[in-house]
Design a protein around this nucleic acid. Structure first.
Lengths: 226, 226, 226, 226
DNA sequence: GATGAATGAGGATTCATTCAT
DNA sequence: AATGAATGAATCCTCATTCAT
């Protein structure tokens, strides 16, 4: 039930001090179970008591690490999304060549596949329009959109009209994140788990081919796969 | 295009006889506000009290119309999705010609645009993997997927490998439903409301062109819009 | 443990509608026990649970009658102090003759003797400087002070300098209300209960004599200051 | 005639050895803020955490100085009241002449004016009838009452019947301590702070004149009762 | 069909307190 | 002497639900 911490202690925005190693471990454990439960039930549906229980604590103890439910939720979001932001920032320096786009798709898919709860978390927030949506949008999604628009603008001869481009970006988000966020539904309908390495590889292939197809729209002379 | 009680008396799952007209009206009012609130806050976040209040009632009165929160939620889901099922069933008799697909896209977009809360409702359920997901998947999504696979199979020369096809269908769902479900996020990021007639028309245009593009993948000789 | 309701239904500021007789009775019962407990422990020390238990209810049921702890406290204060305000307003029309003052003392003492918790309630609030103090001061104490100053001003030849007069009023409040509010201390020290009819009569006698003494000061033939 | 324990080192109730100077300073700091907070909110309303915070400590650290909340409260009470006890004992050796009474009033007023929280503390305890009331009454108030009764008895021709005398003493307490204890209310009603030097001087003048007036009653030439 | 009153369960959070560090 | 982490009990309050009216 607990996924790899992936913590980046050099960036601890909440508790700057190193604290004890045990305390940091507890904190990560809380964040792990909270991420899972928030993803499963949404903010309102997840209870501090159950988060605590799953982390092997009492509800009261949570308050030694986070000042409240909201702060815990924010920390979960922060920890989950930060790597994506970093990913994108690193990417923006590598230009928008087809290879770079291809690499970005692979990297994002890989990251999301490793943190299975994050997409659902984001979707819960996105669908509900909760209090943290603004920050989520501003810090993560908007930069991504702008980068994407930039890339399309600088592409030699884009297939898409300028007014359609935002929707293209939006579509890419739906496709990339949605695949994981809707995992419960897809499991039910397709009978296969989107997190299965097979499915993961398949979806990656699908997305890359889609990217190819899109670029082919400009010059559709060479449609090849892998 | 008519949403009212679906005129199928043999299916009344909740209350056998609709009783008085006033009662039916109250019931619809409850369903309306419940749909909105469930979409906004998810199942756990929506309270019977607030639903009742928005419907001009007391919480106790809700129980004269629905046996409990779960039943109310089920009824909301049922009422919202039924027309989509009907839509698809009607469609299946018209073949899978590009024109038919085009018409389906238009029809679905139109329906979802009219019932703004439904997609978020579905997404909440899909992301959370709640108790009603199985029925939702079985009655609505699976038929849709099968129909889609069927169509792709019978297409002259499909661009997509057989193993990718389920993902293509899944992608279409992400694109079509996601546009509305993620409305809060899109509003935040794009600064425009997905339900605006302009945006609605734009997204429809985008999807149709995508369909064209996909088919063009087979024979990409004629990429035209509208 | 429960004292006479003394409720004045013609003035119900909280629940204008008559409600059921049983409901009104419950409400009064809650107010009775809340008055006692707030007096005993102060606002912070009294718990909703215990108030409910003493009233034969569950804590949740309290919220059917009062919107929260604050509202309950306010209602207790209102119900207890309203008669005093009325008393004073009635008094103000009878002039400030020694007989009137004498009657006022008797009436106030009688009322406070009947509602033994009220003075402690007021003292808790006055000493703590709580949120309701402003209203308490404005509605009850300030009018009383102004009436008193008025009376002293119109007295033929007052013994007290103008600047001392507010302190005289303040002193009267200390004496009248304090006798009851400090009941626990007095019981401990004097070994007698301030609410004993004997003590009550004694204190009344003391106060009346004090009033006489004060008015006798009007003829300051042999009084010196400093 | 001596009640107080008083300078009996064998009774060191809290901490046998004051330990380091720094520790003693911390202890005093804690007592200071605790006195203020207990006065402001009463025993139940004051939290260890906030006391600690105001003292620049963590709640856990309080337990290095006091064994618990009760002990802390007791220590605050003890520290505040001890000087009053001493004051009174010193007084008892100077007889009951009008000058002595006058000096006592001045001394007590001066002390209370210097320790603004003490009266409210005492009133909270007196009104609530808490666990420490007995000691407070026995050590401080009862001696005072007995001294007062003694004085009145030995006065040449007292104006007050024997049965009224306890109430006279009680009244004096109300007047002297109440002026400070009810500071929040008086501020609200009179618009002036009882601790202002002006007000302090005024109240002292008022009390001394009252004492004069009372002694003047000794010659009851024109005073009638009932 | 609507409602006010009642309730048990549970919500988040704070409490005083302990203990290893 | 100070503290961070942990906790059981208690805080106020909301929840969905029932039932007599």
């Amino acid at each position: 039930m607990s996924f790899a911490p992936h913590s980046d202690p050099s960036r601890g925005s909440e508790r700057p001090l190193p604290a004890s190693a045990a305390a940091r471990a507890t904190r990560e454990r809380i964040l792990d179970v909270a991420e899972a439960l928030f993803a499963e039930r949404g903010f309102a549906g997840a209870s501090m008591r159950e988060i605590a229980a799953r982390a092997g604590l009492t509800a009261a103890s949570l308050y030694n690490h986070f000042s409240g439910k909201d702060a815990l939720y924010a920390a979960v979001l922060e920890r989950g999304i930060r790597p994506l932001i970093d990913l994108m920032e690193g990417m923006s320096q590598k230009g928008h060549s087809p290879e770079a786009v291809d690499a970005l798709i692979c990297a994002v898919m890989h990251h999301l596949g490793r943190r299975p709860h994050l997409p659902r978390l984001v979707y819960h927030e996105a669908v509900a329009g909760g209090a943290h949506l603004a920050r989520l949008a501003g810090q993560w999604v908007r930069p991504l959109v702008e980068r994407g628009l930039d890339a399309m603008e600088h592409a030699p001869g884009s297939y898409w009209d300028e007014e359609l481009r935002p929707l293209v970006i939006s579509a890419w988000i739906h496709l990339v994140v949605g695949h994981f966020a809707m995992a419960p539904l897809l499991r039910e309908v397709l009978g296969r788990d989107p997190f299965d390495p097979d499915m993961l590889e398949l979806q990656t292939r699908f997305l890359r081919r889609l990217a190819t197809l899109q670029q082919a729209g400009t010059d559709p002379s060479h449609l090849t796969d892998d």
